[in-house]
Amino acid sequence: MSAYLYLLIAIVAEVVGTSALKASEGFTRLGPTAVVVVGYGLAFWLLSLTLRTIPVGIAYATWSGLGIVLIAAVGWVAFGQKLDVWAMLGMVLIIAGVLIMNLLSTSAAH
């Protein structure tokens, strides 16, 4: 399987885990707490697999950048959190940074 596919699945697992973290209410609810543990466990395992071929700086920038944008979207849709124009602009800049690092930077060369 492609390292970037592992990374994408790792990001989704981390976003699921983070979403469940809110629902766990301080680890007092068993179901959401189990989702947190499984989500983060899967996310970190898959991230470790990506580091076999993707440089750590590129992998982590992609992981954290896309994770921030996705969890903000989940917060907006699932939890009713507000995103103002500055938050949205910041997310556009994050996505631009991730794209620049992955598509244009020679740091991503293996």
Score class of each variant (00 low, 15 high):
Asp84Arg: 05
Thr53Lys: 13
Ala72Met: 08
Glu25Leu: 12
Thr33Gln: 06
Val77Asn: 08
Val85Trp: 13
Leu30Glu: 12
Leu42Gly: 02
Gln81Ala: 11
Ala78Thr: 05
Ala23Cys: 06
Ser48Lys: 11
Ile68His: 05
Ser19Asn: 07
Ala78Pro: 01
Pro32Gly: 00
Val35Asp: 02
Ile94Ser: 01
Ala96Gly: 12
Ala109Gln: 15
Val35Asn: 07
Thr106Asp: 14
Ile68Lys: 05
Thr106Gly: 13
Tyr4Pro: 04
Ser24Trp: 10
Gly65Tyr: 05
Met91Gln: 03
Thr106Ser: 15
Leu103Ser: 09
Ile58Trp: 06
Val74His: 04
Val74Gly: 02
Leu66Gln: 03
Val69Thr: 12
Gln81Phe: 06
Val15Arg: 08
Met91Ala: 03
Ser24Leu: 07
Tyr4His: 12
Ser2Met: 11
Tyr40Ser: 04
Val12Cys: 08
Ala61Arg: 05
Ala59Gln: 05
Ala3Asn: 08
Ala43Leu: 07
Met88His: 07
Thr50Lys: 06
Ala108Asp: 11
Gly75Ala: 01
Gly75Met: 02
Ala20Trp: 05
Leu8Arg: 09
Val16Leu: 12
Ala73Thr: 13
Trp76Val: 04
Glu14Asp: 12
Thr53Phe: 09
Ser64His: 06
Arg52Tyr: 10
Phe79Gly: 00
Tyr6Cys: 06
Trp76Phe: 13
Ala3Met: 04
Glu25Gly: 10
Ala61Met: 06
Val92Tyr: 04
Val36Ser: 08
Asp84Ala: 01
Lys82Asn: 15
Ile54Glu: 03
Leu99Lys: 05
Leu5Trp: 11
Leu66Tyr: 03
Leu104Tyr: 15
Ile94Pro: 01
Ile68Asn: 06
Ala43Lys: 01
Leu89Gln: 09
Phe79Asp: 00
Ala3Arg: 07
Gly31Pro: 11
Val74Ile: 10
Thr28Gly: 10
Leu8Met: 12
Gly17Arg: 00
Leu49Cys: 09
Met1Lys: 12
Thr33Pro: 08
Leu8Glu: 06
Gly57Trp: 05
Phe27Gln: 08
Arg52Ser: 12
Trp86Met: 14
Leu66Phe: 10
Ile11Lys: 02
Ile68Glu: 00
Val56Tyr: 05
Ile11Met: 06
Thr33Gly: 06
Val38Leu: 13
Met1Asn: 05
Gly26His: 12
Ser24Met: 07
Val15Ile: 12
Phe79Cys: 02
Leu89Glu: 09
Leu30Ala: 14
Ser105Ile: 04
Ile95Val: 15
Ala109Glu: 14
Tyr4Met: 04
Ser19Glu: 01
Ser64Met: 13
Ile11Gln: 03
Tyr40Ala: 07
Thr33Ile: 02
Ile94Trp: 00
Tyr4Trp: 13
Ala109Cys: 11
Val37Pro: 09
Leu47Glu: 01
Gly97Ser: 02
Ala109Asn: 14
Ala43Gly: 09
Val85Ser: 14
Val77Glu: 08
Leu93Tyr: 08
